[in-house]
Design a protein around this nucleic acid. Structure first.
Lengths: 174, 174
DNA sequence: AAAGATTGAGTTGTCAATCTTT
DNA sequence: AAAGATTGACAACTCAATCTTT
């Protein structure tokens, strides 16, 4: 793997700190997990509810908000995605009649608000049980309670670097 | 979130076992991490080396193989992806001159073998340092050695469900 | 017919440019 | 000009259908 263990003095700006054997093994497992798990979750949701994990996260997030409403920026932080990716996804959900955009909403003139429709609420409610079953199957059935705690802590820390605002949000509403 | 905590007796086939509070918190953090981290890794690799994480995994995997060669099926298991996704990616890498396909190879007549070219080897070698730095930044800098162990174990178990062959492969070559 | 792999069409994501409001 | 959000072009992924070899 262009040997990520030994240090053969690369002609680099920083003398790169290579990965230890433990770190390399963890990295390989982590990357494989990143490649394998999302498609598995997506496949279940797509099959059973016609949406992907990201879209589910949006509507599920909205379902927990006061008035089932949130600003685009808040949703983007909740899901830890770019504004662009969110905008495209919301357009899709809007086409299905599951959410509605409200521009120039009172109080926050510059922003766009997104509202979960009744149809959208019905969709999440219907989708939730099978989604939870998949979450159990893919993750929780194989973990001890202690490992569940480790998982949360680890993911929280990774988010602290990759998406600090999201990490803070999750921390706050826990 | 279509309340994933309480059980309001859904009219479902199985009486769905809902998530506990701890599980729900872990799930939210996990999903946010799945949405946030891959784009961060992809962005670095794309910027610095012109490939994404999946493609990097392929060429890095090949660089560790005898003769820098592996069958499509083996690569698909290593990276935990579908044959289709792999085939498309290999086509892209082939267009760049980083790998070559060898059909009807000796010994394994039915399969296709993929070989990492010298240019491909040079590309991984050049890309590795910055990639390792990103791995450190996004993951290892924030974790204790014990947490690194937890991460490996956890990912291994998730792979055991989502991609059993991959889990076995990683276990074997550890 | 089964295993190994590829293809093409449709969908989703990314990146950079743009638009609007303050 | 900065914040909030959208757009369009391009790249990557998914799913189902297909092809080839045994």
């Amino acid at each position: 793997m262009a040997d990520m263990t030994s240090s053969s003095l690369p002609a680099d700006q920083e003398p790169t700190p290579w990965l230890s054997e433990e770190e390399l093994a963890a990295w390989k497992a982590f990357v494989a997990m990143l490649l394998a798990v999302p498609p598995a979750i997506d496949a279940q949701l797509k099959r059973d509810a016609g949406i992907n994990l990201f879209e589910y996260t949006i509507v599920a997030g909205l379902s927990e908000m006061p008035d089932r409403t949130a600003r685009m920026a808040v949703l983007a932080q909740l899901a830890a995605v770019s504004a662009s990716r969110l905008s495209h996804a919301v357009s899709r959900l809007e086409r299905q009649g599951w959410v509605e955009r409200r521009t120039h909403a009172a109080g926050e003139p510059r922003s766009t608000e997104v509202v979960l429709t009744d149809a959208g609420m019905a969709m999440v409610t219907a989708a939730a049980p099978a989604h939870v079953r998949e979450a159990r199957h893919l993750v929780f059935d194989g973990l001890t309670p202690a490992q569940v705690g480790q998982l949360q802590k680890l993911c929280g820390q990774l988010l602290g670097t990759a998406a600090p605002e999201t990490a803070a949000l999750l921390e706050r509403f826990r």
